[in-house]
Design a protein around this nucleic acid. Sequence first.
DNA 1: TAGTGGTCTAGACCACAGC
DNA 2: CTGTGGTCTAGACCACTAA
Lengths: 241, 241
Amino acid sequence: MTSFLYTAAKEKIISLIESNEISMDQRLPSERALAQKLGFTRMTIKKALNSLVDDHVLIRHPGDGTYLLHGKHSGRIDAGDDAPWSLTQTIKIKGGVPNSEIKSFKLVYDVPMLTKIFPDFTEFYELIRIRKFDDIVFSIQKAYIPFRLFEDAHRYDFSKISLYDYLSYKNMRPALFHRKIRTCPVTSDSLFKNFNVGPSKLVLSVEYLGYTKPDCLVEYTQSYFDSNQVDFKVEIPYSFK
Amino acid sequence: MTSFLYTAAKEKIISLIESNEISMDQRLPSERALAQKLGFTRMTIKKALNSLVDDHVLIRHPGDGTYLLHGKHSGRIDAGDDAPWSLTQTIKIKGGVPNSEIKSFKLVYDVPMLTKIFPDFTEFYELIRIRKFDDIVFSIQKAYIPFRLFEDAHRYDFSKISLYDYLSYKNMRPALFHRKIRTCPVTSDSLFKNFNVGPSKLVLSVEYLGYTKPDCLVEYTQSYFDSNQVDFKVEIPYSFK
DNA sequence: TAGTGGTCTAGACCACAGC
DNA sequence: CTGTGGTCTAGACCACTAA
């Protein structure tokens, strides 16, 4: 979908990792070695490797080498809607079994909540997904994107391709996020039956508004997380006067 | 402290921003213009600018330009111990008034909790800080670093220089983190008087273990956050078999 | 000492946004 | 069409790590 050399290099490096040619806790080949082996410039390989560092797949030490980010203290995957790398891919490389199940994908009209959020649109695609890590449901997500901006969305299989890869392909990948987090009790909504928690348990609710620019809202997502399965990074929200 | 060209470029660009030569919602000069104006290569300027993007200071749009990351939906600062950029600097650029007050900085010995965490060390520097954003206390932090690794730490003023800049300078900046998050009631600890919350309120407690490598622990921090003031990014922790 | 990743240069071409 | 940022090359030097 993207057609940069460093993306191609990235995929070849991932293949190396997945095919177990690099064993755990072992150094990856050096930038120079990979450049020669895979047929790219050193700078292109560097870009690919550092991109995998951003994705929490690798870790690099100057003067030493590049390593798989493994071990007890390294396991941490961004699970938010603004995660940099396809969650499915990341889980796979980490040795987990990913499983994204689509519960529903359809057009919805005249939903008051949505018209309030998106004053300029009336029709939306609604994508409801169950996300698993090693067969444990950690998240239920309802994503909404305006039909007018993504008329061809029905042609893609979002159990296979990440929603964000699709938005990137349409040059609509959100860069700014407005988030609201709160805890809420498990409701009787049948969706929550997927969570392995009793009705008295608290579930974490996160709302994402994704903007490509400050004035260009392209996505609204409601995510519910099993608070036993996820963790958080602390941030300070503020509103600029 | 760091002496790379792109760091120098970064600081000059920050000066430009702070001196209001770039007004809000206005484009920054192009990479090529900055390169000529500041006397660096375009690639060096690019590195500086993209580094400021990582720090949530700027946002860039291909084919368009580079902008200050402002506006209602853009305000979000990483407040964790693993935040990429000095919190003080970021708050300042965002138009806020930073205020990091040092409550205590001293050597501590034979603390059972610490010897359990750091089996190889017995003496530690303890740094207790109150962190504010626009005069509102959002966090209280107790940081511990082994004396043997940072013997000259007493020579630095951590109200002016970020602890992480210091660790970077010693080539000991943590890259891996082990975090534990929980909510706890406000205790009678006099430190909590700094929070503007009643005794029945819940405070967010986050523990960070910072490693330079999977086997090299260099920092332990206990942070307490006013849950009214901070927000979170969702992640999936996992332990590799 | 040999090898690593990080930085840096001075060019080049490209896709894209705005006018 | 002009200007933007992104990618890419083919070199170079540096500081650091580990043997």
